[in-house]
Design a protein around this nucleic acid. Structure first.
Lengths: 319, 319
DNA sequence: GTGAAAGCGCTAACAC
DNA sequence: GTGTTAGCGCTTTCAC
């Protein structure tokens, strides 16, 4: 493997000169620099990350720990983060499961974004003693070096349900996402609060997992068991809502005539589905960008001002 | 930041003893080892990746360079790779765009899997001079240190189209994915070859990009322009096929009565869509596992035997 | 403008 | 069983 020594030898100069050139130090005249760059290119030399990191004490890298590579939501979020990070010349690496824990523990990056429910609060709290900054998207966790950049799930869901009550809906069902997750819990409590404020009881609840497929299964079981329909199904996210609508429609039900269905996220498909899905729009790309900006400022020891990412209500045809 | 020195000092031993303990060297008696582990844990010490990598000349890490975080296909592929890599105690990192190139050039891993059309052949060829192994999934590239683990797109597509001819279909349309990609080109040539073998001319071709949304747009434009329908639309992948079917059905067409539609990949939704989509099944999870196994063997300098991942024809209702 | 040399945090060969 | 030490490939201070 070619090292800085090989280049120095081939260029008959010292390794420090090569290092200066590789780092575009202006002290080296252009002519010399170009000659050395050419030699490096020819040899196929590029500085080894491990050596540079050890010396410089930074990695110019950011870790995004996600729970899963699927789903239309992460997609846009990751694109937004990557887009903005690239502007600041940071390298982004995405990981799941045990890989994330390895990378974090060994401090393979200068900053981290966590949205993986499999990583425990304890792990993060320990990590934060030796690692900063950590931005969490999937929980509310307070400690030095940990920053929360969540969505205003509760407030926007409460507004949405209140609006549905004003539109005349009375019997409300909530279809949960993965239980005990921050997103599900906060959306659910917004839902409850809206009903309680109007002294309306919850008609029924179902338990899903944020996927289209489980949405289909829930609707199938409702129809199979001939359960009574509410006025509206408030789903924890769009995918669940779309899965349910697919099953209901397959057996001839009309939405919103027979009952309404709403989602959360505003994924691409939401606007294309028939009926077009009413939902709460989260601009995941923008969210990603602001996460990246905040992370970069934190890594540069600059002050940050964090606000919750705002969801906005999008009324279409399904309610 | 806590280093090995801090632990040694706190434990009143040498840094080598700490190192042995952290690496579970059996020379250190359990009692001592536990004491030192406890101290390390208390201090919050964990070996720094950069230092270890520099010394050991390996990273125990693998890079997966993808072009995009979206889509149901990558999802399963990545899960399969991660699943199998974890068994061998490798850490997996996923990256896109310029991040991938940075990581590869700086040799931040011991092996790489490439499925990102934005990375040029030239880049890989240069990289392969200083980096091995590299497994490519999205092209056919022959050089030392580069290994191809592609799908038998051509052959299985040819078999599928031949079968369709036998079923009586005569007028064939091909709906392309992203042009010039390996997957699209090889599937298309399988399609062409099947027709040529039976002296059947291609009825028409459309140009998509592997997405559901573009599939919808293509179908919309076909109907808007009142273009003549073929007997069957052979789509480059499932998402395109499903997008087209959605649009056709929205305007009252019946599949397969009015015309057939086929896909490629067998994504989860293919089996749930109405009509259930006939397609060519790629088991992406298994593919991912065998990619991981091969990569691990290569990193261990063991011999490998590579075969193309086999697609299998799945006939359902849409043709 | 260029070079010599220290040292980042770790592993492992070698010595005892 | 434990400690001493060289050195991985770089960056950067300091000297000239």
């Amino acid at each position: 493997m070619a090292t800085i020594k090989d280049v120095a030898k081939a260029a008959s100069c010292s390794i420090s000169t090569v290092s200066y050139v590789m780092n575009n130090d202006t002290r080296i005249p252009e002519k010399t620099a170009n000659r050395i760059k050419e030699i490096a290119h020819e040899i196929g030399y590029f500085p080894l990350a491990a050596a540079r990191r050890l010396k410089k004490k930074n990695t110019d890298t950011v870790i995004i720990a996600i729970s899963d590579f699927g789903g239309p939501v992460y997609h846009e979020l990751l694109n937004g983060i990557q887009y903005q990070l690239a502007k600041h010349n940071y390298t982004m690496i995405v990981s799941t499961g045990v890989s994330s824990e390895n990378l974090l523990r060994e401090r393979s990056a200068d900053g981290a974004v966590i949205t993986d429910i499999h990583i425990s609060d304890d792990f993060l709290l320990r990590l934060a003693r030796n690692f900063s900054p950590i931005i969490v998207l999937d929980r509310s966790l307070s400690a030095e070096n940990i920053y929360n950049m969540t969505i205003n799930n509760h407030d926007v869901m409460k507004s949405f349900v209140t609006l549905m009550i004003e539109k005349g809906y009375q019997k409300f069902v909530y279809v949960h996402g993965v239980n005990n997750t921050y997103d599900n819990l906060t959306r659910y409590s917004g839902f409850r609060n809206a009903l309680e404020a109007q002294k309306i009881a919850v008609f029924k609840e179902y338990y899903g997992d944020f996927t289209e497929n489980t949405g289909r299964l829930i609707a199938d079981s409702i129809m199979d068991n001939k359960e009574e329909f509410p006025d509206i199904y408030i789903c924890a996210n769009d995918e669940t809502a779309i899965g349910m609508m697919e099953s209901f429609q397959a057996r001839g039900f009309k939405i919103p005539d027979d009952f309404g269905v709403s989602g959360f996220d505003d994924i691409l498909l939401a606007a294309y589905f028939n009926p077009r899905l009413s939902t709460i729009k989260i601009n995941h790309f923008d969210w990603g960008k602001s996460i990246a900006d905040t992370l970069v400022r934190l890594m540069q020891q600059k002050s940050v001002h964090i606000e919750k990412q705002q969801g906005v209500i999008v009324l279409r045809e399904s309610v």
